[in-house]
Design a binder for these strands. Sequence first.
RNA 1: GGCGGCAUAGCCAAGUGGCUAAGGCAGCGGUCUGCAAAACCGUUAUUCCCCGGUUCAAGUCCGGGUGCCGCCUCCA
Length: 483
Amino acid sequence: MRVFNTLTRKKEEFTPLREGRVGMYVCGITAYDVCHVGHARSAVVFDVVSRYLRSRGYDVTYVKNFTDVDDKIIERANREQTGIAEIAERFIAEHNQDMEALGVEPPTVTPRATEHIAGMIRLVETLLAKGLAYRVDGDVYFAVDKFPGYGRLSGRGLEDMLAGARVDVNEKKRNPLDFVLWKASKQGEPWWESPWGQGRPGWHLECSVMSQRYLGDSFDIHGGGEDLVFPHHDNEIAQSEAATGKPLARYWLHNGFVRVNSEKMSKSLGNFFTIREILKQYRPEVLRLFLLASHYRSPVDFSDAALAEARQGMERFYSTLKALRDQAAHGQAPPEGSATEREIVDHLAGLRGRFCEAMDDDFNTARAIGYLFDTVRLLNAALADKKAVLSRQVLTQAEQSLREIGAVLGLFGEEPDVYLRRDREAEAQKRGIDPAEVEALIAERRASREAKAWQRADEIRQGLAARGVVLKDSPAGTTWSIP
RNA sequence: GGCGGCAUAGCCAAGUGGCUAAGGCAGCGGUCUGCAAAACCGUUAUUCCCCGGUUCAAGUCCGGGUGCCGCCUCCA
């Protein structure tokens, strides 16, 4: 298995510190607002990473934190005349709902910053004792020039950064690039007792403490969005490694951004779509397929057209899954294996290998999904071939293979009938189509067809088609969909 | 200003120097169908932004250019 390591900017062979086990830490959200599609990407990407590692037999400990004390939380709490705990609690609950809806498996541990204040104070004390930090008026800062190799992850040296115009002006800092470990709380801000007075932790500190607490001084994978590379992850490295003298994480993985019209989706730009807003319009797996159809490090452009395309793809998968199941239920189960059956069995036997080959190459979900579509095409061809009746055994095996591999991507988890029904309901609602009316027209058309009144039957079909409703006649009756 | 990334068909997108450049969506032709839809078959990039170089061989490596994006401030 090879993974791209931000630290070296290369794909490297993945070797965990302890055989058979993987410790993974991913930076989670600051709980001050509902999650948008950008958060969904990070969550889905690392969900798939942990699912895949587990499917390869690793015992994965996945830690994802919640930042529940921070300027923005304080700001919102003040605005709403409530406490930061209430705000954090509320948005953590909202986050958890969104993740569950998206089919994201809960991480092994989901620690919160405020549960680890004591550990943070200890880490600051260690850094002070080692002379890597200094105190000013109740604040404690990390002295970046005392840590050789500061900025290694983002690939910038101190000189590079100082040359940049945009550095924080703060009189208290010895070096403009120093960052706060602990800050004295102002009037009305939440605070904890510390050796430096009443204060609160700096943002970077919590991840250093919580990763160490749950995964040890050194662990295998540290992940997050690419915007966290600098300064957050560089600062984590500085704090942790300065304190322990050991490398923090072996592999640093960063997912690319979700864009809107070629711009980063973000709160500050205001160009974001919340997860719940999208899930009103599309099945959760549509969003997952959209996100996983590109490599996790590439940017993806979010748009309704892109989601609509992913929806078509999911429709294709579920239609095949449904066809496999329907035919297995009604099939006559011929005993002898035909040439078509042998071809399918051979193909399925190799599918897992191809899937792993793609995923082993830095979690190439896009390629993996391509292989799944190959399988679908082969199966559809066999299903469409009336001469080649497939045995129940092969049909079931095909369905199981698809589901088993899909599960690693968090796809194909629904019953095909349920998926297709719900998908249609959402689409009907979106377009203001009344299902009862459609059913009534279908009944009228059936009567017309029975009377061979083709003109009226076609009129109904075309009328519905103009509104996006497509009818499909089969020996069992007429069904409808909104492609 | 400093640092970094990306550029592959109408669109999305994979592509680890070497057989015919995955896959999806959309389109077109056909099979099937009363007509359709779905599905299937066929078709859609002599070429991978431009220029130069390395190599027997480059979408893939190197240099230059152009365009887009990100980080350097909270940010997944």
